[in-house]
Design a protein around this nucleic acid. Structure first.
Length: 310
RNA sequence: CGCGGGGUGGAGCAGUCUGGUAGCUCGCAAGGCUCAUAACCUUGAGGUCCCGGGUUCAAAUCCCGGCCCCGCAA
């Protein structure tokens, strides 16, 4: 089939890569414009753009999705189907109805659960035992379109958003090709979503990473994994930002939430609302991430210290 | 030129403002102690203080240039 691909981040780039290696014809690619990124704020191309250019595929990166010149160009590519993977914008009806087969979307959850911008992170934060990928037709309501195919995967006990994404990206790429084949052969049947079972996974904000020490240790530990690699679960020590990259739930004597109950060679433990968290890998602002043992060697943190704002 | 912090024995850090014998915690080696230990005691090895210039009687420390790492931001 003749395909136009719309996507932006790394996970999407993998799907594009797989399409380019398939017999399908990728007529063009649409991605977000180069944005200032990294230190120095130099505009950097999106991962999808990088892959497209490497393969010499035409790329459009409109600032405004409704820009008439862009819509004309998109129409001129005359796709049979538009494949959308984490493009990063809500598409107007005009684009949804542009191709004969409409817009095919790869979503990284088992819909109707976790509709929205951050399905992977919230699945980890909520301690889900399984997640997966779904292909569906895009409709105007966010992630509410009829489901085409779905494939599940079990989460491991130490799953992070980063690790889960690594697993879901290739799964999604596989499912995408399978779905395209099914559409071409007429063997997939769209299935309406069960609205009553829908849940939402809103975009993660920087502030979501702030650790609330009054939560149960198990909940904090899940947030440590769910917010890796971004925004990272973090707190403050002595006025400085302290990121928690890895932690473990432990049993401990009662202490006010946020209080350091252990800071010696047996570990760095912090009291939570229920239980305590053994910090295993941390990172002080401006410094590298280090094991708690290394952190203890260089810092003067002691039992009784308080972590958190103020 | 987006803002800011940093590069000091194998690791993590202090010392730099107010130049003048290189320090802390840990690791490592040897010996000791203990039924035993991520235990403890003693001794020891190990450093071009990122690189290159400059100022000075003297530079980890002050000045100029460069390389690398990191936090914020996106």
């Amino acid at each position: 089939m003749r395909i136009v691909f719309m996507g932006t981040p790394r996970v999407a780039a993998l799907s594009l890569q797989r399409l380019l290696n398939s017999p399908h014809a990728v007529a063009g690619v649409v991605t977000q414009p180069d944005r200032p990124a990294g230190r120095g704020q130099k505009p950097a191309p999106s991962p999808v753009r990088a892959v497209a250019e490497k393969h010499g595929v035409a790329v459009l990166a409109p600032e405004k999705i409704r820009d008439p010149a862009f819509l004309d160009a998109l129409t001129a590519w005359s796709p049979d189907v538009i494949v959308v993977v984490a493009y990063g914008r809500i598409l107007p009806r005009q684009i949804l109805e542009l191709a004969p087969h409409g817009c095919l979307n790869v979503h990284y959850s088992l819909l109707p659960k976790y509709r929205g911008a951050a399905p992977v992170a919230w699945a980890v934060v909520n301690g889900e035992e399984k997640s997966g990928v779904t292909t569906m037709h895009l409709v105007e309501k966010m992630d509410a379109g009829p489901i085409l195919l779905q494939r599940g995967i079990a989460l491991t006990a130490d799953e992070t958003t980063a690790s889960l994404q690594e697993k879901l990206a290739p799964l999604g790429a596989d499912l995408l090709l399978e779905t395209l084949a099914g559409i071409a052969a007429g063997t997939v049947t769209p299935k309406t979503q069960d609205e009553a079972a829908a849940t939402y996974a809103p975009m993660i904000k920087k502030e979501d990473g702030v650790i609330d020490w009054s939560l149960p240790a198990a909940a904090i530990e899940r947030r440590v994994r769910g917010f890796a690699p971004w925004p990272t679960a973090y707190t403050h020590f002595d006025g400085a930002l302290l990121k928690i990259h890895r932690a473990r739930v432990v049993e401990s004597e009662k202490a006010p939430p946020g209080e350091v109950v252990r800071a010696d060679r047996s570990g760095l433990w912090v009291a939570a609302g229920a239980g305590a968290l053994a910090l295993e890998e941390v990172q002080l602002e401006n410094r590298k991430r280090v094991s708690s043992a290394e952190f203890l060697n260089g810092s003067r943190i002691e039992k009784g210290a308080r972590l958190g704002p103020g």
